[in-house]
Design a protein around this nucleic acid. Structure first.
Length: 104
DNA sequence: GGGGTGACCCAGT
DNA sequence: TACTGGGCCACCC
């Protein structure tokens, strides 16, 4: 799987995250690990930064639930609007974390 | 080719 | 709780 295909796979997966739920950068990387042959949270982060504009980017947060740096306000507003469980730090990962297997 | 830089993550202190 | 060090990998000088 080439770099471009990997970008497509990441965006595809992010589009499948249901409203009110989230995935961490690392979880996205892990979910595509078998198919792509690599698992790098940093890579997913940079892909979201560069190509995330057309997908629900606010549903991808850090593993601790913190919102994407530089977009905290916008992300929080969208998450709040779709009923995502929030805490002071950001997202309540125990309640909001979603995985692909769960959605089939 | 070599080195710096991220929308990261985890274990250790 | 907060900080650090190492690992990570595509990009861009």
């Amino acid at each position: 799987m080439g770099p471009d295909e990997y970008v497509e796979a990441v965006l595809e997966l992010v589009e499948r995250i249901p409203p009110g739920r989230v995935m961490s950068y690392g979880a996205v990387a892990d979910a595509l690990a078998e198919r792509s042959g690599r698992s790098s949270a940093r890579l997913v982060g940079s892909i979201m930064a560069r190509h995330g504009g057309g997908v629900p980017w606010h549903r991808v947060v850090t593993s601790s639930g913190r919102l994407p740096p530089g977009h905290e306000r916008e992300a929080r507003a969208r998450l709040l609007a779709e009923g995502t469980p929030l805490r002071s730090a950001g997202v309540d990962m125990r309640a909001a974390s979603w995985s692909p297997e769960e959605g089939m």
